[in-house]
Write a protein that binds this DNA or RNA. Structure first.
Lengths: 166, 166
DNA sequence: TTTGTTGCAAAACGTTTGCAGCCTC
DNA sequence: GAGGCTGCAAACGTTTTGCAACAAA
C-alpha cells in the first residue's frame, strides 16, 4: 500500500482486498475496520466486542472472523503473548516498527523501537522461506516489579556458552 | 544421554531452587524434569503427558504445575505460537540460542541461528527493565507452501511437526 | 503434625463451529 | 436466486481449579 496512511487509503485497500479475494463487502466488516483503526494501541477481541456493542449490533463470531481477515490482508498484527486473549494492533497509521518488553512478573507489555535490531532482522534472508513479518518479545522484570522482588532474589547460574551482559 | 555431568548440574540447580523457594522436592517434579531433559526439541504438555504415562503415574495437572515451575526457574522456555498447545523446550544442554521461523500457511516451526541478530538484541539495555530472555519469531511462507500456493492449493490450517529445511 | 502437592474430574477460558436466516453479488 | 456471511448458542481444545487423599518437611 502507498505511504498515504489516511483512513480512506486503508478503507480502499480493504475493499480491493475483499474484491480480489471474492469476499463480500459487508457493513460489519467495514464497521470493524473502522473501530480497529480508531483504537490506539493493543486490543483484543473482547475489548473490541464490548466497544462496538455500544453503537453497533455485532457478534463475537463476526469479530473473530473479521480480525482473521484483517490479519490475512496485513491491516492488523496479531500477538499471542500467553494463553489469554490474542492481542491485536493496527499495522498502519501506528508506529508499528516496535518490539515488545514483557514483564514476566506482572505481565505488563511495553513497546520499544531499536534500529540496529530491526536492521539485523530485516537483512536476514532464507533460501526456502519468504519472511512477511516478525515479532520480537523481550522478557524480564520491569522496574516496578524489581523493587518489589528485591527481597527474594536468587542467584541464577548460567549454563550457556555465551554470557549475556545487559 | 551422554551428558551425565550436565544433567547432574541441572538436577542440583533445580533442587536448590526448590529448597530456596520452599517448594517440596517431590518425585513427580524430578521425574518430569528428567523426561523434559531427555526430550529433544519442542514439546507440549500433552506430548509429555502421553510419554510419561507409559512408565509413570502422573496427572496432566501436575505436568502443567511442574512446567510452570521449570519456566519460573528458567530451566525451560515456553513458546505460545498460536492458540494451540503452548510449546516448551529445555533451556540448557540444547542449542537454545535460536530463533523461530513460522510458516503462516502450514504452521510449521523451524529453528535458525544468527549471530548478528543475537548480538543486536543482547547488547540492548534498558534503564527500567532487566531482560532475562527473548523470543524472536519470523513469520512467512515456507518453500513447500510457496510451491503449493503457486499451484493453487489454498489454505492448509494444519500444525505439523516434521522438519523440512527452509 | 502441618500444609504443600497430588490425581481426578469438573470448570473455566478464549476461540471455533453448526445452523437457520439474511443480504451481497 | 445462489451462496457467502451473519448472530446466536453450543461445542471445542487447552489450561486451571476444587477437593479429598497423600506425603514431604
Amino acid at each position: 500500500m502507498g505511504e498515504e496512511n489516511s483512513y480512506e487509503a486503508i478503507h480502499e485497500y480493504f475493499t480491493k482486498y475483499l474484491r480480489e479475494h471474492k469476499h463480500r463487502r459487508t457493513p460489519e466488516r467495514y464497521a470493524i475496520l473502522e473501530h480497529v483503526y480508531s483504537y490506539e494501541g493493543h486490543f483484543n477481541a473482547d475489548i473490541l466486542y464490548n466497544l462496538m456493542k455500544q453503537d453497533y449490533r455485532v457478534s463475537l463470531a463476526t469479530i473473530y472472523n473479521s480480525l482473521d481477515l484483517l490479519v490475512e490482508c496485513k491491516l492488523i498484527i496479531k500477538h499471542q503473548l500467553g494463553n489469554q486473549y490474542a492481542q491485536y494492533e493496527r499495522a498502519f497509521g501506528n508506529n508499528n516498527l516496535h518490539h515488545h518488553l514483557i514483564c514476566t512478573n506482572c505481565g505488563k507489555v511495553k513497546e520499544f523501537s531499536d534500529k540496529p535490531i530491526r536492521v539485523a532482522i530485516q537483512s536476514k534472508a532464507f533460501v526456502h522461506f519468504k519472511m512477511s513479518h516478525y515479532s520480537l518479545y523481550l522478557y524480564g522484570i520491569c522496574g516496578k516489579c524489581k523493587d518489589e522482588l528485591k527481597k527474594g532474589i536468587i542467584h541464577i547460574p548460567r549454563f550457556t556458552e555465551d554470557s549475556d551482559d545487559f
